[in-house]
């Protein structure tokens, strides 16, 4: 269905060329939104949509952009898109907008966006750029979800807000279990990302 090259563009960032664990981009936001699964999921989706759209727009106008101000043009495109999405969410999905609050604005500073615009969209056709944005956004979302899954499960005993570890296990109710408070600290996100990188590298090296 897809040619080898487009397949590589779309699926490469999910594993072999993952923006977070291979290119080590977008770490800062990965720390901020991964305490719970839900904001991590929403953030992942939001970034995916915005990277894909920004990639397409920049790719469409890539031949007209003056080289000296290209970063500024990219920034304007991203900032406009983020503002647009935030306005639309506030009007049609107010709860989600409140949930995302500051993180939505922080998408502008996500290095993955600028990285993809500069490295891919500036030199490729719109359709390829769209796939590249989609792939990178999803690659970012996967890592976010993995980290958030571990942090919410062991930090709060819940997943997506639903209780997984039974209340009766807790020491407060006469059980033996205690939530790991360290999981809720940003430092733990960094350690977990490190673990994901470790596992990812050792699997991929074996393949080679």
């Amino acid at each position: 269905m897809l040619s080898q090259k487009t397949k590589e563009t779309l699926l490469g960032p999910l594993n072999a060329n993952n923006p977070v664990v291979v290119q080590i981009l977008g770490i800062c936001s990965a720390l901020a939104v991964t305490v719970q699964l839900k904001p991590a999921l929403v953030m992942g989706i939001a970034v995916t949509i915005i990277v894909a759209m920004a990639n397409v727009i920049v790719s469409l106008i890539r031949n007209t952009i003056p080289m000296r101000v290209r970063i500024i043009v990219q920034l304007v495109v991203v900032a406009a898109l983020v503002t647009l999405v935030s306005e639309i969410l506030k009007a049609f999905a107010y709860d989600v907008a409140m949930q995302l609050s500051v993180y939505l604005g922080l998408i502008i500073t996500n290095c993955i966006l600028m990285g993809r615009l500069e490295a891919f969209a500036m030199t490729n056709k719109p359709w390829d750029s769209f796939l590249d944005g989609l792939g990178n956004g999803l690659g970012y979302a996967i890592i976010l979800v993995i980290v958030a899954f571990v942090r919410e499960l062991f930090g709060a005993g819940t997943l997506l807000g639903f209780r997984i570890i039974p209340d009766s296990w807790y020491a407060a109710n006469g059980g033996f279990y205690e939530n790991n408070g360290m999981m809720l600290m940003p430092a733990m996100a960094l350690i977990l990302v490190g673990c994901v990188i470790w596992v990812h590298r050792s699997i991929n090296d074996e393949k080679k």
Binding site: M67, V69, I72, V73, V76, A80, E87, I88
Partner: peptide, 26 residues
């Protein structure tokens, strides 16, 4: 596309388009 005048006009146009779009949406 690298001349000063082109760069200047280009940026002005981009900013005006974005500003009008966002103001309209808002």
């Amino acid at each position: 596309t690298n001349s000063n005048i082109y760069t200047f006009i280009y940026m002005t146009v981009v900013v005006v388009i974005v500003a009008v779009l966002l103001a309209f949406v808002n």
